[in-house]
Design a protein around this nucleic acid. Structure first.
Length: 548
RNA sequence: GCGCCCGUAGCUCAGUGGAUAGAGCGCUCGCCUCCGGAGCGAGAGGUCGCAGGUUCAAAUCCUGCCGGGCGCGCCA
């Protein structure tokens, strides 16, 4: 991902312009040269593969094209460039001057708290629906992954400039809710729960908390049970730092004078997307890419789950969102094609609806996979997990992994390693910087240092150069994490930034550094690093304490 | 049978077209008069599941196979 504006963007423009000059008219628009930070120090500060991409078009060997590009770049970049080398099959390795790096840090300083933010090309109103676990039991540990992911994605979108609504869809009607009511009623009477009911201990507790649970209509008992569980779920979400803007009731789609589900049916009928067969109302989802048609209304007259979902998405669209993002569990992926097809049948524009599938969390305890069956009451709750390893560790752990890989969480290992969790390393670096800045004299000393830093003209140490470059990468990292819906990239970046700072701290004395302007430069470098770590952690929903 | 996700170090996982594939944990060795040792340095550890193919270049893209997870309902 590329962010427009800033030192890296200028560099990219220079490479593009040089490419255009070498290949003549047409320019490099159709090719997309990389500008990456090579792994090896000897390969320069940045490297580009432009010459290798242009070689076929230029009809010359890559290294010849690279040579021409190098000359162009030297002219265009002037003092910013120390030197440029042609390497390997045709890479161009750019060695930037200290002047360029100092100016680059000046850019980071000037950007302030907004550094890396507001880069969305066109701001949108985005609805992110996530977790949406059935209110038939407490929030499980796996729900924590959904919560951390959805919320972090929302934070990234917001920071990028979008207007985000966090939403939780409550499946508060249907068979599962009925079974919950029956289970509570049975427990209240001291009986075993019915076949297929909920056996967890929490059902007994609900039975005690609901007056008349044993005698009242199970439907009413179920409603009360759902209400109590939702309060509990809401509290668990709050505990992990997630506060939803909207709690959307599925039942509400079926209520009122003109229920949303009815209106959705009418809209689909009007569009000729439905038909009757075998006593049921069907939707032509197969005409929109789904494997087969699906039932909207059962032959019993009851609307299907899909019917609710269609009405729900229609409602979201009517609320004026430009983009709908649903985060679903892996067990729902069979529903994806169906939902896309249905949305299409409703006339939704392609790409407006994104369905993201989260893979599972396996909880390993005493070397065995815990079963995590809500129905049997056999699962680890999110509250337990938070109590055992803490909110920051839970969020960081859940967000370190890509959403489309199954993760194994070994509880015993997590407990043992909780003090060695990478999140503490990142937080420690942040606290350490806070301590350094305080020792230097706090803001009365740091604020002027931020001003002076851009005027520093001393020679930079390798660790200083590396740290500046790591900071410069931040806006691209955010854009990448946001656009790829991959908040785990932020976790990886935060860890790398902390490591880079720690190396700088080891090699470079900050407070009392000798040489004109050296201390100011390093204070500015430290202060901007602190800010960037704090921002990275904030985007993950993890705290950045000044003291630990 | 069909579809989706995954297979990378002992373990948990990054890396999805670039140069000699990385991190954390674990293991071995070294470092506590020095801005916070919750730290630092060095080291061992890899057929990137297997086999073909595309490409100047493949862990990354294509095809097939193997292994694991999930799904394929007038359940939600």
């Amino acid at each position: 991902m590329r962010v427009v504006g800033g030192p890296l963007s200028d560099l990219r423009d220079a490479v593009a312009a040089a490419s255009g000059a070498v290949t003549g008219a047409g320019g490099p628009r159709s090719v997309s040269p990389t500008l990456e930070r090579p792994k090896k120090v000897g390969f320069g500060d940045y490297a580009t593969n432009a010459a290798m991409l242009l070689a076929p078009r230029a009809g010359k060997p890559p290294r010849d094209v690279a040579g021409q590009l190098a000359e162009e770049l030297e002219q265009r970049l002037g003092a910013a460039l120390e030197r440029v080398e042609v390497a390997g099959p045709g890479f161009l390795n750019l060695f930037m001057s200290d002047v360029w790096l100092v100016a680059a840090l000046g850019h980071v300083v000037a950007a302030g708290d907004a550094f890396g933010g507001g880069t969305a090309p066109s701001p949108e109103r985005v609805n992110v629906e996530f977790v949406s676990a059935n209110p038939t039991g407490p929030m499980t540990a796996a729900g924590g992954r959904h919560a951390a992911y959805g919320d972090s994605l929302a934070r990234l979108l917001e920071f990028s400039g979008h207007d985000v609504t966090r939403e939780y869809y409550i499946n508060d009607i249907g068979g599962q809710v009925r079974r919950l009511g029956d289970s509570i009623s049975a427990r209240a009477r001291g009986e075993a729960v019915p076949e297929g009911g909920y056996e967890g201990e929490y059902v007994r507790e609900l039975a005690e908390r609901i007056p008349g649970a044993g005698t009242d209509d199970p439907a009413v008992v179920a409603e009360r049970g759902v209400q109590l569980l939702l309060e509990q779920i809401c509290a668990s979400m709050h505990a992990i730092g997630v506060d939803f803007d909207v709690w959307f009731s599925e039942a509400s789609l079926h209520a009122g004078e003109s229920p949303a589900v009815r209106r959705a049916f009418e809209e689909l009928e009007r569009r000729g997307e439905t038909y009757r067969s075998e006593g049921a109302l069907w939707l032509r989802t197969s005409a929109h890419g789904a494997p087969k048609d699906d039932v909207l209304e059962r032959s019993t007259g009851e609307p299907s789950y899909l019917a609710s979902d269609i009405a729900y998405h229609l409602d979201k669209r009517e609320r004026g969102f430009d983009r709908l993002i649903d985060v679903w569990g892996a067990d729902h992926h069979g529903h994806v094609a169906r939902m896309h097809a249905a949305f299409d049948a409703l006339g939704g524009s392609t790409g407006q609806l994104e369905l993201i599938i989260m893979q599972f969390v396996n909880i390993i305890e005493r070397g065995e996979r815990a079963q995590m069956s809500k129905r049997r009451g056999d699962f680890v709750t999110l509250d337990d997990l938070i109590e055992q390893i803490g909110v920051d560790a839970v969020r960081f752990f859940m967000l370190q992994r890509s959403h489309d890989t199954t993760i194994d969480l070994d509880l015993d290992l997590a407990r043992e390693q909780s003090s060695e969790n990478p999140v503490y390393y990142v937080q420690y670096a942040h606290a350490r910087i806070a301590s350094i800045l305080a020792k230097a004299g706090g803001s009365p000393r740091v604020l002027p240092a931020l001003e002076e830093a851009a005027g520093f003209d001393g020679a930079l140490q390798p660790a200083e150069r590396t740290l500046v470059k790591k900071l410069l990468a931040f806006p691209d990292e955010i854009a990448e994490a946001t656009e790829k819906r991959a908040p785990h990239r932020m976790a990886v970046y935060a860890l790398e930034l902390a490591q880079t700072f720690t190396a700088f701290y080891r090699d470079c004395q900050v407070v009392g550094a000798e040489g004109a302007g050296r201390e100011s430069f390093r204070l500015a470098l430290s202060a901007t690093t602190k800010r960037t770590i704090a921002r990275s952690l904030d985007l993950l929903g993890v705290s950045a304490p000044d003291k630990m």
